[in-house]
Every structure is written in C-alpha cells, then in structure tokens.
Amino acid sequence: MSASREFVVRIGERELVARVTASDPPVVVVDGVAHEVTPVAGGRSHVRVQGEAAQRIVSLDGAASPTAAAIGGVAFALDVRTAQAAARDAALAATGSASAGGGLVKAPMPGRVVRVLVSAGQTVERGTPLVIVEAMKMENELLATVAGVIKAVHVGEGVAVDAGQALVELDPS
C-alpha cells in the first residue's frame, strides 16, 4: 500500500480535500475523484482523471506549497495546508474569537498540557505565554489576550484536555 498525505485546498470560498498517494504515477484524489499527475518542465503538471483520455495542464507557482495555479490559462489563488494544520487553524479560530476580549483561555483542541507558565495572583501583559498544550505532535503556546492578573489556573502539567476546556482564568486590568 502506498503512503498518502492529506491536504486542504482553498480556492476562493471553496474548500477541497486532496489526498496525495505516493505511487507511480502519483495519484491525487479530490472529492472522491482520482487524478493521475505527471510533472512536466516549467512547474507544470499534466492531470488526467483516471479512466478518461483528456488531460488538463495545471501550472503551479513553483513553491513547495503553491499559492496559485493556472488551468487552461485561467489563474486561481490557492491556500494549501496539511489536514492537521487546517484542523488546528479552525480550532484556534473557534476558540480565539471567544477568548479575545476576556479572561478565559481555553484549549483550542484536544491535547495534553506540557507546561503551565503562570500561577494564580501573577500579573501578566497581553501576549504573555500562559500554557503550552501539545496537540497533533505540535506544541501550541497559548498567550494572554489581555493584560491582567491570573485569577485561576484550572489545569496542571501532564493533564489531558478537551477542546474548549478552560485552562487559565484572567482578570483583565
């Protein structure tokens, strides 16, 4: 079985899931449709839906993670992220808006508390690191969104946390 990687590709308002299989030729499955990809000179690739004779030429901008593509001469802006990065960004956006104006810092996703960097009664400035949570093999440093005094620390090091769980309570100044 070939190894595969999953990506989330945003084109305008549309978001697609692409699974790339390291086979020969490489296969990209987008929304359940398999495409064979043959790289050619100039940063372009021939893309053919498996089982069909017609090919499309896709030109990427040459970056390791492309930011633009052209298909048949029509250019499209791309946002390509790994599935893990897309999930992390969505979780941070969901909890970041809830905590941006207040004093409750929540876990952006399920994980494990690696370090607690503050204690109750401590005065902190906006941007001060409070807690480090490990999720999806990445350490996420959660920062104070406002200046204030630590009212309570609800977790300890090594504790498993759920998405949205309160970690630190901050009394804004």
Score class of each variant (00 low, 15 high):
26 P>L: 06
145 T>G: 05
70 A>V: 12
33 V>H: 07
31 D>W: 04
7 F>M: 07
37 V>L: 15
142 L>A: 02
164 G>K: 09
79 D>Q: 15
30 V>T: 08
29 V>G: 02
58 V>E: 02
49 V>M: 11
6 E>P: 05
149 V>G: 03
77 A>D: 15
43 G>K: 05
129 P>V: 02
117 L>C: 08
111 G>L: 06
10 R>H: 03
67 T>K: 15
69 A>W: 08
109 M>P: 01
50 Q>M: 13
52 E>Q: 14
55 Q>N: 03
53 A>D: 11
137 K>I: 01
96 G>Q: 03
97 S>E: 14
100 A>P: 06
46 H>N: 12
149 V>C: 06
28 V>C: 14
8 V>E: 09
9 V>S: 03
53 A>G: 02
39 P>H: 06
107 A>C: 14
25 P>G: 01
108 P>R: 09
156 G>H: 10
92 L>R: 13
29 V>D: 12
65 S>K: 14
166 A>D: 15
12 G>L: 03
113 V>I: 14
128 T>M: 01
46 H>A: 11
10 R>E: 12
32 G>V: 08
167 L>E: 08
111 G>Y: 09
168 V>P: 06
1 M>H: 13
109 M>S: 09
167 L>H: 09
115 R>D: 15
28 V>T: 11
17 V>F: 01
45 S>Y: 12
127 G>M: 02
78 L>T: 06
61 D>T: 10
29 V>S: 13
64 A>I: 14
69 A>K: 06
61 D>N: 12
145 T>N: 06
51 G>Y: 10
108 P>N: 09
12 G>Q: 01
11 I>D: 05
134 E>H: 05
168 V>R: 08
100 A>T: 13
88 R>S: 13
83 A>P: 02
99 S>L: 04
10 R>M: 04
65 S>P: 01
58 V>M: 10
41 A>E: 15
33 V>F: 07
138 M>Q: 07
92 L>N: 10
54 A>L: 09
25 P>V: 02
5 R>Y: 13
9 V>E: 00
142 L>V: 02
122 Q>A: 12
45 S>C: 15
12 G>R: 01
83 A>G: 03
79 D>H: 11
51 G>Q: 07
128 T>F: 00
104 L>Y: 06
28 V>N: 08
51 G>C: 11
13 E>G: 01
95 T>M: 15
112 R>D: 04
